[in-house]
Nucleic acid binder design. Structure first.
Length: 320
DNA sequence: AAAACCCACAACCGCGATCGG
DNA sequence: GCCGATCGCGGTTGTGGGTTT
């Protein structure tokens, strides 16, 4: 495949954009729209490559962008989503109206990553450094790690939620990706109801429900890939274990299909409980402070919210 | 006052995916 | 189905302003 010559190779302008150039881009977009950036430099009278024009528009000039500082709520959401899906900045940015992937990425790299490190948390794995060291000591005995959601294939990503024009809002694509047929292949009416509730909430711009769905998906992967035995009898045992964790009872002789329903209920309820906890604990209360950011509050309350609690907040099932 | 350093963020690069002739 | 053109993404670099020495 022939590569596009870079702006550099074409001897085009590469430094910071001037107000005059910005005005030309705005004029171009108002006249021609954003569908064809290749012709933008010529039509707008700019000595920039089309790619550069597109980035300038996408990351800076778009009228729907926010240019204010990140709020503590946004901070919290970035951390939680990063813990869930890794550095998928475009997806994370979709959950933060008015923010671009570049904004989120820069904010993570310059602020959040360091703050987590200062708290003794590895910003890559979201584990405390002490646990990483402990794990390293036990490296031979660890079960094989399962696939991270962050390593979802590009096919899935692109087909399901990377085409905003296919959806009425940014979250809809993910909702489609996480339809019961994919997320929970053998679920019945009970789980459908739960999922419908989630879909409804996502449609109402409750970004944390995206996290719940992602985590449910991950939980499903983990249970399917790493812990679930294939034989029905073994499945019963696993189901009993999972449900007992949730304080529920299960009967002997449960069918595989019923088990799946129960298991999905368990997953959904667990995430609901997690988010209720998060919503009611000190974190949210402190997040409302205009003075303190989410992380700063945690730092100031080290004796109250110990590291272990923060990890519970993150609810990172991937690394269990 | 000036050099050195730090930080935030704008911008670019390279790659894979997708589109369209 | 092929292939060139384009888009979108994540990683990285460059730049300018602020702070420290």
């Amino acid at each position: 495949m022939v590569r596009i010559p870079s702006c550099d190779k074409l001897n085009l302008k590469r430094d910071l954009w001037t107000a005059e150039e910005d005005a030309k881009i705005l004029a171009y977009v108002s006249k021609h729209g954003t569908s064809n950036w290749t012709s933008a430099p010529k039509k707008a009278g700019l000595r920039r490559c089309g790619k550069s024009c597109r980035l300038r528009w996408t990351n800076y000039l778009r009228p729907d962008l926010k240019h204010q500082n990140f709020t503590s709520q946004e901070e919290e959401l970035i951390i939680r989503l990063h813990a869930a899906i890794g550095s998928r900045w475009a997806i994370i940015a979709q959950q933060l109206p008015g923010r671009t992937d570049n904004d989120v990425k820069n904010y993570w790299n310059t602020k959040l990553r360091r703050k987590l490190s200062e708290m003794g948390i590895d910003p890559v794995t979201h584990k405390p450094f002490s646990q990483i060291l402990a794990d390293y000591g036990n490296i031979g005995g660890l079960p094989r790690s399962t696939k991270r959601i962050g390593s979802l294939s590009r096919e899935l990503k692109t087909s399901a939620y990377m085409k905003p024009e296919h959806h009425s809002n940014s979250a809809q694509g993910l909702v489609d990706l996480l339809t019961p047929s994919m997320l929970l292949p053998e679920t019945g009416p009970v789980m459908d109801q739960s999922m419908n509730a989630n879909v409804h909430q996502v449609n109402n711009n409750h970004p944390l429900n995206l996290l719940a769905q992602l985590q449910a998906m991950q939980r499903d992967f983990l249970l399917e890939d790493a812990f679930l035995p294939s034989e029905p009898q073994e499945l019963e045992n696993v189901g009993e274990f999972s449900l007992n964790q949730n304080g529920c009872q299960t009967e002997n002789g449960i069918s595989k299909e019923e088990l799946n329903k129960e298991r999905c209920d368990y997953q959904y309820n667990r995430f609901e409980a997690t988010h209720c906890l998060v919503g009611n604990n000190d974190i949210e209360a402190s997040s409302s402070s205009a003075e303190n950011t989410f992380i700063e509050t945690l730092l100031h309350q080290e004796d109250k919210i110990i590291l272990f609690d923060f990890l519970n907040l993150l609810e990172e099932p991937l690394y269990q």
